[in-house]
Nucleic acid binder design. Structure first.
Lengths: 185, 185
DNA sequence: TAAGATTGAGTCTTCAATCTTA
DNA sequence: TAAGATTGAAGACTCAATCTTA
């Protein structure tokens, strides 16, 4: 195997099969996007097990992690949340309702705009996401063990370059929001 | 920006924010897995539009594409399909029912095992997936335009290496099946 | 008028139980 | 007994319509 040849993973077998059926169609798209999709789905098998240990669904974890990331007082507006999570506003309402029932978040009064209530972590929510996030990152690092640090850096840099180009497309939903949300860092 | 620095995409901003909140937790996992997830979700925005043009849902497209890839007579057993697609058997039953209603597949008699009926493309199904698949690959190639051919090869090789390591984990569901399904190619 | 959030209907999925055949 | 496929219930999401406030 040379430096640029890919190992024979599941997607490589699918591509080889398809080349015989539709040899006239270039398959570069599959090489990357099908693998990104499969990497997400496969890694979820182990990551979901981590969430389960903390009695969380993946979608609930994402909301709690966003709130923790924002720092004290651990509160965000629903619109910020659903745009960042790439789900609809209706979907987020459901997640918040579930997390409220579990007493991991509450809707607190927003000072700025009376149309929206801030979503805020409860002390139990903060404690839960602290433990769950640390476990999650440990599991994720472990899943990436097949790549050395240099390969990991190369991979994340290529993914970031590709993602940035998609985020900058005029037709990309949420583009304006992503821009103005850019922190000084 | 140096060779190994990542461009400041959305995930980079999330990571910078989080480093301030939980500086003690290594975040290498997010660098790659969060980006893979986001790449899948963002690219789907454009890809789903292609499917819609052919009046297909993403899940339906995947079934048709699997059948086409298998070559004449374009038929597979349901178990092969749901394992390859990483969905449950119940989920596949529904997809087949929907595709049957659209007259894109049919359940034909399997000669080997009377417990299962082969799922087979109809002529309309073959015609549909031929056009849809070509459009899909064109769209996917276009989405990857920000990376030059060399970068694309490097990215797919790294993804393949990582995926192969996940597929080889003893705990990976479907591992045995994936192995025996490996074609000579 | 527009923006933020919620609601209800419809869709696609998983999960567990079931039926049939090996 | 086990494997393949289906069913029905429950879950989480999208979409479009609605309500409230800017």
């Amino acid at each position: 195997m040379t430096e640029t040849d890919s190992p024979i993973d599941h997607v490589a077998r699918l591509i080889a099969q398809r080349r015989r059926e539709t040899p006239h169609i270039p398959l570069e798209g599959m090489e990357i996007l099908a693998r990104a999709r499969r990497l997400d789905r496969m890694s979820r098998i182990w990551i979901d097990a981590v969430f389960k240990k903390h009695k969380l669904e993946a979608g609930e974890f994402d909301v709690l992690a966003s709130l923790q990331r924002s720092g004290p007082p651990y509160s965000l507006r629903p619109t910020e949340l659903y745009r960042s999570l790439m789900i609809t506003s209706g979907g987020l309402t459901d997640r918040i309702n579930r997390l409220t029932r579990k007493e991991l978040v509450r809707r607190s009064v927003g000072e700025i705009d009376a149309r929206s209530l801030l979503v805020q972590l409860t002390p139990l929510g903060l404690q839960t996401i602290r433990a769950a996030f640390e476990d999650d990152m440990r599991a994720e690092s472990e899943l990436l063990g097949a790549l050395n640090p240099e390969e990991q850096r190369a991979l994340s840099a290529l993914l970031a370059k590709l993602l940035l180009s998609l985020e900058r497309r005029p037709e990309a939903p949420g583009y304006e929001e992503a821009q103005e949300a850019a922190p000084a860092s």
